[in-house]
Amino acid sequence: MAVYTDIEENALKNFLLDYDLGSLISFEGITEGVENSNYRLVLSSGNYILTLFEKRVNSAELPWFVGYMGHLAKNNISCPLPIKAKDGQALRQLANRPALIVTFLDGQAVKNITEQSCLELGRALAKLHKAGEGFDSERSNKLGAQGWKALLSQCDSHGDQKIEALISQTHCDLEKVLSHWPEPKELPRGQIHADLFPDNVFFKNESLSGIIDFYFACTDFFAYDIAICINAWCFENNEHYLPQRTAMILQGYEEFRPLSPLERNRLPVLCQGAALRFLLTRLYDWIHTPPGAKVVKKNPWDYQKRLTYFLEHKSV
């Protein structure tokens, strides 16, 4: 989450007239994340999240996200539920951006990752994958392996030697990863979250209470979603890999969806690809985030370290 587009209070009040949500009490921007503009709304009927879609999200695909979140909520996954306006539509326009209001989930991101929180993460991810099996519509992974070369080609160092060195090394590493990447039908696939970082997983009273931010969700390898979690949850201080956390994620996951031997075998290269994907998007945002945007830019070098680790170690 982040804020790229500012909202005027009167414009927001007029926007809310299309809903049966009561009156506006307060609103504030949420600076976490990097993709869309997000606001926390306090209305007389309760708390909500307003998202204005920017950058990488294709507006034509937004109904897919709305449908997917609605499907998950109906299948007992604790996630934000899109709110429909008086005309029955969830998607609207505000500040010349596609806009969506969703329910507010109680809880907060875990402050200190533990083996227990990793176990619960694995369980929740498997349940998410199982629940998505009934959602037949597919969305291709726009930030998947087929798009990595194009994304890297859009990164220019502008004379910065440190960035130039990162770009050069990433070109080499990209070829290594792609040379071993699974074929599209090689592994089980379905609907995945594709961005399940700790700040997108809520806990309450030390128990996992919900999952948010589904705007990278897509149809891809289930095991790739696990690899993303391993990258995001299993490193300490962005450098030291903690294999026991991975073991707990896998243990929790396999309570509900056992991995095939081939999925296990391909998990190391999927971890390489997950590290590469976030290195590339962070590098792109590091270079292209506009001045004045209310967003905390993520460090791409953190994911270069992860990528280097997984390239040097052939097991997870």
Rank of each mutant, 00 (worst) to 15 (best):
A232S: 14
F53R: 01
S207R: 14
A150E: 15
C218E: 03
L94F: 05
R97N: 14
V177S: 05
I30N: 08
Y253S: 02
Q304D: 13
L311I: 08
S179C: 09
E239W: 04
V110W: 00
I83E: 12
T170R: 07
S153K: 14
T51M: 09
S153M: 12
L280P: 02
K294Y: 09
Q93G: 02
N36A: 12
Y309N: 07
L208W: 01
F214A: 07
W286T: 14
F197Q: 06
C79Y: 01
V110Q: 11
A109S: 15
A73L: 07
D87W: 09
V295Q: 10
W181N: 06
A95N: 12
G70V: 01
A274H: 01
G147I: 00
N10H: 10
F235T: 03
D173P: 01
F65Y: 15
G122Q: 08
R97D: 15
S37T: 11
K127I: 02
Q272W: 08
D6L: 11
N141W: 13
Y4C: 03
Y224I: 05
T281N: 07
H313Q: 15
G67Y: 06
G33R: 01
F216H: 14
I287Q: 14
N200V: 07
L276T: 02
A274C: 13
P184D: 15
L21F: 05
K13Q: 15
F202Y: 15
H171T: 08
C234F: 03
L94C: 10
R282E: 11
M69H: 02
N14T: 11
I7Q: 11
T31R: 14
L174Y: 09
D199W: 08
W286M: 13
I101D: 12
E263C: 06
I101H: 07
P80S: 07
G22T: 03
V66Y: 07
W301K: 07
R282H: 10
C229I: 04
A217E: 04
Q93L: 10
A145C: 11
Q251T: 13
E9W: 04
Y215A: 04
L187M: 13
V296L: 14
I230R: 00
Q304S: 11
Y39A: 03
D199R: 02
V110F: 00
N200R: 02
S78C: 12
L270P: 04
F65Q: 01
Q191D: 06
F202W: 06
I163S: 13
S44R: 05
Q154F: 08
S45E: 15
F202P: 00
Q89I: 05
E263H: 06
T170V: 13
L262W: 07
Q93F: 07
Q108N: 10
A232C: 08
R277P: 08
H71Q: 11
H158N: 15
S45V: 01
I7N: 10
T246M: 10
E175I: 03
S37R: 04
V296F: 08
L166K: 04
P182S: 12
G46R: 08
L259F: 09
K297P: 11
K86H: 10
E120L: 13
S260G: 12
F27T: 04
F104M: 13
S26M: 09
N58L: 12
A227W: 00
I228Q: 05
R245H: 12
N47G: 07
E263N: 09
Y284C: 06
L91T: 08
